[in-house]
């Protein structure tokens, strides 16, 4: 018998968990052993998936939600939040992830999309969602569908930060421009961004997205984390960048330190020493598949 009325699955608690992850590093892991390394290194959360993006890129084929047994195995060994990915538009995968008790669902372009027109109706869930975006219009459409956290997409699995920077600059640059716009111009912004007017008006007023904005796709070094956080990202997702490097544990730890000390070059110089080789990177114009193009 409860002496208070509890409301669960509200926007405040869903966005609230994203608030708690700010200034942190969320790491892709493919098994319990990696999850443990991530937690030991100070990750604020882990993203459970079957293959890291660089392997998905290499192997090809359809990439789907992970095996529930693998997700449960990871939940058992760590005490930090566990996230997992569902395909774009695949609400049945998302329902399964919610039933498994994952803490955040990533409706992710890294997996093969299941619907070419519709993203998941995220308002229908108690579990919060994070979605990728390459520009402000995409971010606002995801928020209008109920996303509680936005991550700039970057280009996953490349170890190349250039796309993440492009997307962050696009989103944050447009936000700055909108704060300078007059009322009449906001209608035009909504039209051009293909986004709901009330969200555009909210951005004009508060000068930022109404949900936390993190960065993903291409972060491989402590300096990369510092770069995107100085540009305005509030936390970072690191996918292939850790477990495809020579020595994952110290690199994971160094990126965690970098997310806290991103404004301190002297500290960053100390943190970045002796980490071994970063993951091998890929040139964007030589990619067969641009994951960031998935999503609408």
């Amino acid at each position: 018998m409860s002496d208070v009325t509890r409301s669960t699955g509200t926007q405040l608690v869903k966005r609230g968990l994203a608030e708690m992850l700010k200034g942190g590093v969320i790491m892709d892991v493919v098994d319990p052993a990696q999850a443990k390394i991530a937690e030991d290194a100070g990750a604020v959360a882990v993203m459970a998936l079957e293959r890291v993006p660089s392997d998905i890129r290499r192997d090809g084929g359809v990439a789907r939600m992970s095996d529930p047994e693998m997700i449960e195995g990871i939940k058992e060994v760590v005490t930090i939040p566990v996230m997992a990915k569902a395909r774009i538009g695949h609400f049945a995968e998302a329902q399964i992830l919610q039933a498994l008790g994952v803490d955040y669902v990533d409706e992710s372009e890294v997996l093969t999309p299941a619907d070419e027109a519709h993203h998941i109706d995220k308002w229908a869930f108690d579990v919060p969602f994070v979605c990728g975006a390459t520009n402000l219009g995409e971010a606002l459409r995801r928020i209008s569908e109920g996303a509680c956290m936005i991550r700039s997409k970057g280009e996953a699995g490349t170890g190349n930060i250039v796309e993440a920077v492009r997307h962050l600059r696009s989103i944050l640059g447009d936000i700055r421009r909108i704060t300078q716009a007059d009322q009449a111009e906001l209608f035009d912004w909504a039209k051009r961004l293909q986004s709901p007017l009330p969200l555009v008006q909210e951005i004009a007023e508060i000068g930022q997205l109404p949900v936390p904005m993190f960065c993903a796709g291409g972060i491989a070094t402590p300096a990369d984390a510092s770069l995107v956080m100085q540009l305005g990202a509030q936390a970072v997702f690191v996918g292939s960048g850790i477990f495809k490097s020579d020595d994952p544990a110290p690199r994971a730890r160094a990126i965690v330190e970098a997310a806290t000390n991103f404004q301190d070059p002297t500290m960053l110089a100390k943190i970045s020493r002796g980490l071994g080789n970063a993951m091998p990177g890929l040139e964007i114009d030589q990619l067969e598949t641009r994951l960031a193009d998935r999503g609408w």
Partner: peptide, 16 residues
């Protein structure tokens, strides 16, 4: 006890 009120789906608001 850490996370004693459960995982994220159990997170809640209440008047105190």
């Amino acid at each position: 006890r850490r996370n004693g009120y459960g995982r994220q789906v159990d997170s809640f608001e209440a008047d105190l």
